[in-house]
Simulated scan of single mutants.
Amino acid sequence: MVRKLRFHEQKLLRKVNFIQWEPNNLNELRMMKKYGVDRNEYAKYHKMCSETRKVAEKLSTLETDDSFRNECTAQLLEKLYSMGIINTKRLKHCKEVSVSSFCRRRLPVFMKKSGMFNGPLEVAVKYVKHGHVRVGPHVVYDPAFLVTRDQEDFIAWTDKFRENIDTYNEKRDDYKD
Rank of each mutant, 00 (worst) to 15 (best):
S60Q: 13
E9C: 07
I155Q: 03
R104Q: 07
P108M: 05
C94P: 07
G119P: 08
C49E: 00
R172Y: 15
V125D: 01
K95G: 05
S67R: 12
N169I: 12
R39L: 11
F18K: 11
A56D: 07
V99C: 01
N25G: 04
L107Y: 02
G136Y: 08
F102V: 01
V147A: 04
V133M: 05
T88I: 11
A124W: 05
K34H: 14
V2D: 08
S114P: 07
Y141V: 03
S67I: 15
H46L: 00
V147D: 02
E96P: 04
Y45N: 01
I86L: 03
E170V: 08
E78D: 15
V133T: 05
I85F: 00
T73A: 09
M83N: 14
Y127L: 10
T88R: 13
E41Y: 07
Y35W: 10
A43T: 13
A74K: 15
K113M: 08
E71M: 11
D166Y: 13
K112P: 06
K58Q: 15
F161E: 09
C49Y: 00
A56E: 07
Q75G: 15
Q20W: 14
L146M: 07
M83F: 00
V125Q: 02
C49G: 07
L5D: 15
L12V: 14
G119F: 04
Q20V: 06
W21L: 13
K129P: 03
L62S: 03
K44Y: 02
P143K: 02
N17I: 06
